[in-house]
Nucleic acid binder design. Sequence first.
DNA 1: AATGTGACATACC
DNA 2: TGGTATGCCACAT
Length: 114
Amino acid sequence: MNDFFTPKEDFFEQVFAVVKLIPKGRVTTYGAIAEYLVAKKSARVVGYAMNASHSLLDKIPAHRVVNRNGLLTGKMHFATPDTMQNLLEMEGVVVENNQIVDFKKILWLPIEEL
DNA sequence: AATGTGACATACC
DNA sequence: TGGTATGCCACAT
C-alpha cells in the first residue's frame, strides 16, 4: 500500500531490521537471517547488506553477525580487524581465534525468536 | 543492458 | 579432514 514510510522493500532494509533486533550478547549468522527472510539461498546478499551498512547512518551491529562457523569473517571490513572481536567481547561474547566460543549457545535465531 | 562482485553456504574430491 | 569449486541472488559499476 503506502510506501510513504516504506523505505523500500530492499533486502537490505529487512536485513538491517533483523540485525538491529539482535539482543546484546547474542550473535546470528548470515544464513539464519537469510532463512528468516525466506531467501536462504541469498546468504551472500545478507553479507553484502552489511557492507552497505557503512553508508547508513543507522547503527548496524554487524559484529553480531558471523558466518555459519561462528567465525568473524567480516572482521577485516571494520575499521580495524580487531574492532569486531573487541565489540563482541565488550558485550560479553567470548571470542577465541576469531571464532565465537559457545557459538551455538549464544546463537540467536530470528526465525525462532520472532 | 550486461558483466562483475561478494561480510555465505553447500557439494565435491 | 580440509581445500577447491560452484551456486546463489541482489547490488555496484
